[in-house]
Design a protein around this nucleic acid. Structure first.
Length: 676
RNA sequence: GGCUAGGUAGCUCAGCUGGUCAGAGCACGGCACUCAUAAUGCCGGGGUCGUGGGUUCGACUCCCACCCUAGCCA
């Protein structure tokens, strides 16, 4: 505590291609808590991040939307910033990899590596889309698995049998972009000679910069041999062009981690911090990267090697966390547990999630489960029932009987002392990213504070004449214990902590000033600091998450509750008769490849057959549909969709997603009969 | 398929290098209290520690095999 540390922390850069979801937030909340904790300890700590804005998916997505990549990343970047702000992620800077600083630094690193002989070139053969005129990443080629024959598999691995292979081995391959059959084509690529750094990396990975299990994992990669890393991509590509290499661009993963530096450099320009002091080879500052376990390879091998090779410092540590599961299972769009940050914020308090994650986060790469039932109980009992309750049960007496005035001394200084002393253990836990342990310790204090109040029974004393001073003393003690607890929870609950400071009318809580109790001091009237989680709100959020999914890619239309949707304007009988509704038999139903929510239905209209693409995949199993009767709009103008032409519409009711119900005629109706 | 992790009470998790380690919180049952957002305090039931072997005087803790879950395989 005596020396002030200088610390720079980062979270991995979210890809500027889609919304932030709860899985992302594990990492941002984990990092934010750590950064806030360091500042409360009196250290100089900066937290920077940025959008990862380059690469093929962004280029194609922008094209699909008919906008420029710049416009896309601008819009997504705005959404990301809003979502992070909603969860009170306190970045000191949030930048973009598509920035002048990043171009400059990526280029500089590349040129230094090249000058030092760590870059080589080689012609490789790669799949090429002749229609689209571009090389295809493996994930943009689909076909049948060469091993098990499963249809519609990616170019690199089979989801059905787990086989890995090269796109050239796929049977009947086609480009996801154009549908064309890819051809092989040659191209000159630039490679980073990672093997040059093997001795340095072997030493670095075992020098305490990584979690032990991560270092174990890296041994596997060392054993397999470090291969050269392909850092170039051919035009068309959205990224930075490689110097003296027209038509060649830096692969997105090359300039993405440089984004950490670029964001910090941008911060330096604003604040006057000295960039070299933090990133120079002899920097005494600390640098920590929080990442997900899926991107260890990039951060624990490529990144330190690049930095070292280009004459920059290497990270003090790279810390990987596990993935988020929801109710014990992988977040899943089809189960409706793929929850966006925004969807959460529309229904629930961000402090709740921050607390829940903190209560379950450890320093390991274990996955973290968001069990929604547990979430409700945990937040309600720990935060509301225990912690905030301490203030609520003391404040009334102080306000009503003493006009908000606290006593001039503590009733049990030793108890307060023990609370203050616990701060060191709690700090160790935060420092070591053992938030779950920190929270356990803090909750034990809250239990103790409640026991104390129970033992002293201020409500009983208040009824006894002449014991007013005792009531004041007990509540003063209780509020001071509460204040210490909130100080310890401040990294996790910034809003509640700020409101606590307002309620207590005390200066911002820090680890340093927490030891001084508030005495002979007037506090404000108590307002509830935190409300209970209503399980209905969680249900509503899940319903929204399902609706988000049902409308993914379409114009968002909120699903009205049954009966809420206003009745459409009046029409005449003639108007109605323009719609030709027919009884139809579903003779075949199958999922549409590549579409999340479409089924391809073949309908029999009593002789005539129609193919209809219906957005009911989430609600109906294709097998269950074959043979049944329904009603369709038979004279709807055929509509060309991405996956084919739809010749009509089947009738269904419901908000969408899983909640859709097909109409069915009563017994006796025959295919082709008109409905009127 | 290989590798790295995880599989402990209904739920979420602690259990460091083998011998009070079979625990906590929540949920559940009983009692007390009523200051507090049906909050709090006390007491209690509940687990053959994924399965099957092995090492040991003794294993949740070490070894082997298998099953399940997650991620990675550039």
């Amino acid at each position: 505590m005596s020396t002030t540390r200088r610390i720079l922390v980062t979270s991995a850069l979210p890809y500027a291609n889609g919304p932030i979801h709860l899985g992302h937030l594990v990492e941002y909340i984990q990092t934010d808590i750590w950064a806030r904790f360091q500042r409360l300890r009196g250290h100089e700590c900066y937290y920077v991040c940025a959008d990862d804005a380059h690469g093929t998916p962004i280029m194609l997505r922008a094209e699909q939307e008919g906008i420029s990549p710049e416009a896309l990343i601008e819009r997504v970047g705005e959404e990301h910033r809003r979502d992070f702000a909603g969860f009170r992620i306190g970045f000191d800077n949030y930048h973009s990899t598509h920035s002048p600083e990043n171009r400059e630094l990526a280029t500089l690193i590349y040129e230094r590596l090249k000058a030092a002989g760590h870059i080589t070139t080689r012609v490789i053969r790669q799949a090429w889309d002749p229609e689209k005129g571009m090389f295809l990443p493996d994930r943009y080629i689909r076909g049948e698995c060469p091993r098990c024959g499963a249809p519609d598999q990616y170019g690199d691995a089979c989801e059905a049998c787990g086989a890995t292979y090269s796109p050239a081995e796929l049977r009947n391959p086609r480009s996801v972009v154009s549908g064309a059959r890819p051809v092989e084509k040659e191209s000159l690529h630039y490679f980073f000679k990672l093997g040059d750094f093997e001795p340095m990396l072997r030493a670095w990975t075992r020098a305490g910069h990584l979690q032990p299990e991560v270092a174990n994992k890296l041994d596997e990669w060392f054993a397999a041999g470090l291969k050269e890393w392909d850092i170039s991509r051919d035009a068309p590509y959205f990224g930075f062009e490689i110097p003296n290499a027209p038509g060649k661009y830096f692969y997105v993963w090359m300039d993405a981690p440089v984004g950490y530096m670029a964001s910090f450099k941008n911060l330096c320009a604003r604040t006057g911090l000295d960039f070299d002091d933090w990133w120079g080879p002899d920097s005494a500052a600390e640098l920590y990267h929080f990442i997900g376990k899926d991107i260890i390879y990039f951060h624990a091998l490529f990144w330190p090697a690049m930095l070292h090779g280009a004459g920059f410092r290497t990270p003090s540590a790279v810390w990987a966390h596990g993935f988020l599961t929801v109710n014990g299972q992988k977040m899943s769009k089809s189960r409706g547990t793929f929850i966006r940050a925004r969807t959460y914020l529309d229904h629930l308090d961000p402090e709740w999630l921050r607390y829940y994650f903190a209560a379950k986060l450890g320093p390991s790469v274990d996955d973290l489960d968001l069990n929604l039932e547990d979430f409700v109980q945990r937040v309600n009992s720990d935060l509301v029932g225990k912690v905030v309750n301490i203030a609520a049960r003391c404040a009334g007496f102080i306000t009503r009987r003493f006009e908000g005035r606290l006593a001039t001394s503590l009733e049990r200084p030793a108890l307060h002392e023990r609370f203050v002393a616990a701060g060191e253990t709690i700090a160790e836990a935060y420092e070591g990213r053992e938030y779950a342990r920190a929270v356990r310790e803090i909750m034990a204090l809250a239990d103790e504070a409640n026991r104390y109040i129970d033992e002293r029974k201020p409500w009983f004393l208040a009824k006894e004449a002449g014991r007013e001073a005792e009531v004041q003393a007990v509540c003063t003690q209780g509020l001071n214990l509460f204040r210490v607890i909130m100080g310890y929870l401040k990294p996790v609950l910034p809003r509640v902590a700020a409101e606590t400071e307002a309620f207590l009318r005390c200066p911002p809580l820090t680890w340093v000033n927490i030891g001084e109790p508030l005495l002979d001091h007037t506090v404000a009237a108590y307002q509830p600091l935190l409300t209970r989680v209503d399980p209905k709100a969680v249900e509503a959020m899940l319903a929204d998450a399902r609706a988000d999914l049902a409308e993914a890619g379409e114009a968002a239309a909120p699903a009205p509750a049954p009966g809420d949707e206003p009745v459409a304007p009046e029409i005449t009988y003639e108007d109605f008769m323009k719609v030709d509704l027919r009884v139809a038999r579903i003779v075949a139903a199958e999922a549409v490849e590549g579409a999340d929510k479409l089924l391809r239905l073949v309908l029999d209209l009593g002789g005539e057959r129609r193919t209809v693409l219906a957005g009911i995949r989430r609600a109906y199993d294709p097998e269950a549909l074959a043979g049944r009767l329904t009603v369709m709009v038979a004279n709807l103008k055929p509509r060309r969709m991405r996956f084919g032409v739809s010749e009509g519409m089947v009738l269904a009711a419901g908000p969408g997603g899983r909640e859709l119900w097909l109409l069915a005629p009563d017994e006796g109706a025959q295919p082709g009969m008109r409905v009127k």
